[in-house]
């Protein structure tokens, strides 16, 4: 593998029996991670009677493939996916740029009250969204942002605490030599940041990007509260909207939920190389 296990230590341990133990441990763990998804794929292919059958039916026969087409008939999932994609993309762009800026200021620039900002970021990192939803709703109402995508995007353009932490750590680890060279060439701090530090921070930026995409893609509470027009719905609202009050509809919702996971999984697999390296860069020395 290109991205792990290249250290001498790893090479040395190659032939120890511990390897087999490791395989066993990791294999079992991986099964625990994946098997539940397989079970819920099976659930998504059951009709209602099969879903509630006792004893449970593990492999539905015949599989109700129609659940998946029904999901698409019930609601415009293509549109919802597009909305989610737009919002998530804008959130990623905003968060990556602004968090990097702030992280850069905290890591590499003279900023009065740095410590306070850092503590504030740690504090706000822990602030649960649901706590602030009513004041924020009032705010967005006065701004005229209700039923638009702005409340779901703009907060990401104001840097997120997680992004700030990640980028600060990343920039701290970059040697000073580069910027000194650039400064000697007459670059201003923005140019140093944008042309020197940002390219060097790509893995971390990719990590932040994937995480932002993930958070935005999976958000349920805020879109539910802020979006009222069906043509603006995001994917998770679409998934939840299939829930019936009088019928669980669990098989349909499971099908929709699994479908909503697919783009995220693809993104993850594509970005994995960067992403894991970025997570490692944030694994951090302090």
């Amino acid at each position: 593998m290109p991205d792990t296990g290249q250290r001498g230590r790893a090479r040395q341990r190659r032939n120890r029996p511990g390897r087999w133990l490791a395989y066993l441990f990791l294999g079992l763990g991986a099964a625990v991670m994946v098997v539940p998804f397989v079970a819920s794929v099976a659930n998504s292919l059951k009709n209602f009677a099969q879903y509630v059958a006792v004893p449970p039916i593990w492999v539905p026969d015949p599989p109700a493939w129609s659940n998946y087409s029904q999901v698409w008939e019930r609601a415009p999932f293509g549109l919802y996916a597009w909305n989610s994609f737009l919002i998530a993309t804008l959130a990623v762009v905003g968060n990556v740029v602004t968090s990097a800026m702030v992280g850069h200021a905290l890591a590499r620039m003279k900023l009065p009250g740095k410590e306070v900002l850092l503590a504030a970021a740690l504090g706000t990192l822990m602030l649960p969204t649901v706590v602030t939803i009513i004041p924020n709703f009032i705010l967005y109402k006065h701004l005229g942002w209700l039923d638009t995508m702005l409340p779901l995007v703009v907060p990401y353009w104001l840097a997120t605490p997680f992004g700030i932490f990640l980028m600060r750590q990343t920039f701290l680890a970059i040697p000073r030599d580069f910027e000194e060279a650039a400064a000697l060439d007459g670059a201003n701090p923005w140019q140093v940041f944008w042309r020197v530090h940002m390219p060097l921070a790509k893995p971390a930026l990719a990590t932040l990007g994937v995480f932002t995409f993930m958070a935005s893609w999976g958000a349920v509470l805020e879109p539910t509260i802020y979006l009222t027009s069906p043509e603006k719905y995001t994917l998770p609202i679409g998934v939840m909207s299939l829930q019936g009050q009088f019928m669980g509809n669990d098989q349909l919702v499971t099908a929709a939920a699994l479908m909503s996971l697919v783009p995220m999984l693809l993104l993850f697999l594509l970005a994995q190389r960067y992403f894991v390296r970025g997570a490692m860069a944030s694994g951090l020395k302090g």
Partner: peptide, 27 residues
């Protein structure tokens, strides 16, 4: 610690652990 050695299929194994991470709570 188990993953920190040269193993075959390591990136697949690691990916498996990430499937729940990228899933939303609804899923």
């Amino acid at each position: 610690v188990a993953l920190n050695q040269r193993l075959r299929w390591i990136s697949w194994l690691r990916s498996a652990y990430f499937v729940p991470v990228v899933s939303s709570w609804v899923v």
